[in-house]
């Protein structure tokens, strides 16, 4: 919790902040540290309603750290994060989930010894029991029919692609207003990568804005409407996805083209 004399604090929690039209998430010059390591050195990004925004960059550029700053696992020391007009810079992770940001974490992090259904139910942990949860289960089943076939299976016994589907389905069970996806294509067979990105587009078309962190820059830029290129804790480039794809620097460095 920010104290009144600290930067950006106004003594009231949570602070209402006026935002531009349509911007649901705004990172304003955030600096995040791991101990003494300065991982993010002033990152500013925005996600607007209905968009897919992607963060691309090399290993260690700060992509996952940006997500950890947003979801409260690693609070920034400077700068601020505003979600739907509320300052969430120092909000606890579970409160952030309740406010409507859910995620499919890096490495999927499903609960391996829980069944598929139990995993999905964990996604709705912050919600009250009710018919809406059943509706959302149905929605997840229609997006991922394979999960429905395996409801009672232990999640840890599924393939990597299925686990990724579960991780995304579980994140949707929170009925998010913003979905964070961390490396959804990591370690998956190409056919699964195609499928996952197809589903990402579908989720977005159903109305959920998505912040997508990816190493697979080509797929990410094809899917997203806008993108940010991170380099060693800075935003090196910010543009709409199409222009980034055509950017020579990006083509060389991230798309492997000459």
């Amino acid at each position: 919790m920010r104290l009144p004399w600290q930067k950006n604090g106004n003594g009231k929690e949570p602070a209402r902040v006026a935002t531009d039209d349509g911007v649901i998430l705004k990172l304003d010059d955030i600096h995040t540290y791991y101990g003494t390591i300065h991982a993010l050195k002033g990152v500013s990004i925005e996600v607007r309603a209905g968009e897919i925004v992607t963060l691309i960059g090399a290993n260690g550029a700060g992509k996952s750290t940006t997500l950890r700053s947003i979801n409260g696992l690693n609070h920034p020391r400077e700068g601020r994060i505003v979600f739907q007009g509320t300052d969430i810079t120092d909000t606890a992770p579970h409160d952030i989930v309740r406010m409507g940001i859910s995620q499919s974490p890096e490495g999927r992090k499903i609960f391996p010894r829980m069944s598929v259904l139990e995993n999905l139910e964990m996604g709705a942990y912050q919600r009250q029991k009710g018919p809406e949860i059943q509706e959302d289960l149905e929605r997840v089943y229609s997006l991922f029919p394979r999960l429905k076939e395996r409801l009672q299976q232990k999640a840890g016994t599924m393939s990597g692609g299925e686990q990724q589907m579960l991780a995304m389905g579980r994140a949707l069970m929170a009925r998010p207003k913003l979905l964070l996806l961390d490396e959804p294509s990591m370690g998956l067979a190409p056919i699964f990568v195609e499928k996952i990105f197809e589903i990402i587009r579908e989720i977005n078309q159903q109305g959920t804005p998505i912040l997508l962190v990816e190493q697979n820059a080509l797929m990410a830029l094809d899917t997203a409407s806008r993108g940010y290129v991170l380099e060693t804790g800075h935003v090196a480039l910010a543009d709409d996805a199409k222009s980034l794809r055509d950017n020579e620097q990006v083509r060389k460095t991230y798309l492997g083209e000459e």
Partner: peptide
């Protein structure tokens, strides 16, 4: 099972 995942689910 997984503290980080639990936290990410809102526990």
């Amino acid at each position: 099972e997984d503290e980080i995942a639990a936290s990410a689910m809102g526990v």
